[in-house]
Design a binder for these strands. Structure first.
Lengths: 216, 216
DNA sequence: ATTTGAGGTGAACAAATGAGCACTACTTTT
DNA sequence: AAAAGTAGTGCTCATTTGTTCACCTCAAAT
């Protein structure tokens, strides 16, 4: 059953309903939808809604005005927090940067930016954000998919959460420099600290100054 | 101006509308409100709505069915503007504190603002942020001092992290609505779920759509 | 004693709104 | 070539729903 397959038109309609709801706090009427798409007949609109209902995207109350409900089938997630499968590599794609800063490694696909109110925090302008992959920092409240905000200028001391580069990989860990030995300590009992032997292959990208997470 | 002063009856009606919206995704009609309170005439209901409108709690569209909008004056911060016209950036005001442990009263002190690139964030413009106090959500990665970003319009389903009001206090918990019973579930083994008995004293402030944490 | 305001009834009415039918046009599938 | 699916028009029709009026009750204020 390929119920999920929507036509372009149907998707447009669905998007409009979603947007309308968001902006107004109540669903649109058939005629309001029609007006948006230059559909003069309510019947034409209704058939779009029927199609969307049949495909499981909407729920419509009979004879009730504005009785449209969007069924959120995508997220039916349980309440628990995922201690998911062991994901050894903490690869962090770059998602954006705030200001023109020192360019960091490879993939520079900017997806957006985060700007901090200067009155709220005296950040340096070179900060940028990376998306976290892996679960080695969950005990520090940093989960997969979170954005970490990184200050490349800040000096790091033992105990700070940092972003480090080891060879060609970038990882988030707690920094520890004790007796000339540098260790990167995960915040997850399932992982072991990383001991840096060859300092040539290691560098500190920056200090983590913030964590941002979007739900849903 | 004692505009804010509501009668018991008016407050009941307001709570019902809020709850109805939450549960159904669209506002109630006059008759649906009337049925709930055993008010046989729509005129009686309408005068409640008019009173609530006059006092600034509602917004009603003339001649539109279900055209009720709740104006969130409890958390509304007139001093902040949601859109930074220069940079086309969405600004999210930071309003007060929410208790994640034992609920505390939300103070209305604005502590700053977060600015988010709109392309990065498809949330509604009514979002605001609260600072978390307490540790009842640490297993969900929400710690004391974190800012939670709240969407007041979003409808919540079981499993969502929400901000709820219980009597005069505000708290962050996982929402669960099962078999007509609403429970607020902490994400910390040391706390017990809160069972909602009196629905009149409970309302959902909004859904948590983001978490932001500053280190140092 | 009178006024005022909150809360309510019952009925009537107009506007808003969803439901449905017959028919057209176009594209894709069979 | 025929059938099926999508998209739409114009038009009814029945409900749903908001608006309004005259009138009532009760408690608090003047």
């Amino acid at each position: 059953m390929d119920k999920k397959q929507l036509t372009d038109r149907q998707e447009e309609v669905l998007n409009f309903i979603q947007q309308f709801l968001q902006e107004n706090g109540y669903p649109p009427t058939l005629r309001e939808i029609g007006k948006r798409f230059d559909i003069s007949s309510t019947f034409g609109v209704k058939r779009h809604l029927d199609a969307l209902t049949k495909k499981g995207y909407l729920n419509i109350l009979s004879n009730a005005s504005r009785g449209i409900t969007i069924t959120r089938n995508e997220f039916e997630s349980p309440t628990t927090i995922n201690i998911d499968e062991v994901n050894n590599i903490n690869k962090i794609p770059i998602v954006g940067r705030v200001a023109a800063g020192s360019p960091i490694t490879a993939e520079e696909n900017i997806e957006g930016s985060i700007v901090i109110d200067p009155g709220f925090l005296k950040k340096d302008a070179d900060s940028f954000a990376l998306k976290v992959k892996g679960d080695s920092m969950i005990e520090a409240g940093i989960f997969e998919g979170d954005l970490v905000i990184i200050s490349p200028k800040a000096t790091s001391v033992s105990g700070d959460i940092i972003v480090a580069r080891i060879e060609d990989e970038v990882t988030v860990k707690v920094y520890e420099n004790r007796n000339q030995q540098i260790r990167l300590i995960p915040q997850n009992k399932m992982y072991e600290p990383i001991v840096i032997k060859n300092k040539n292959e290691f560098s500190i990208v920056g200090k983590v100054t913030g964590v941002l997470r979007w739900l849903n």
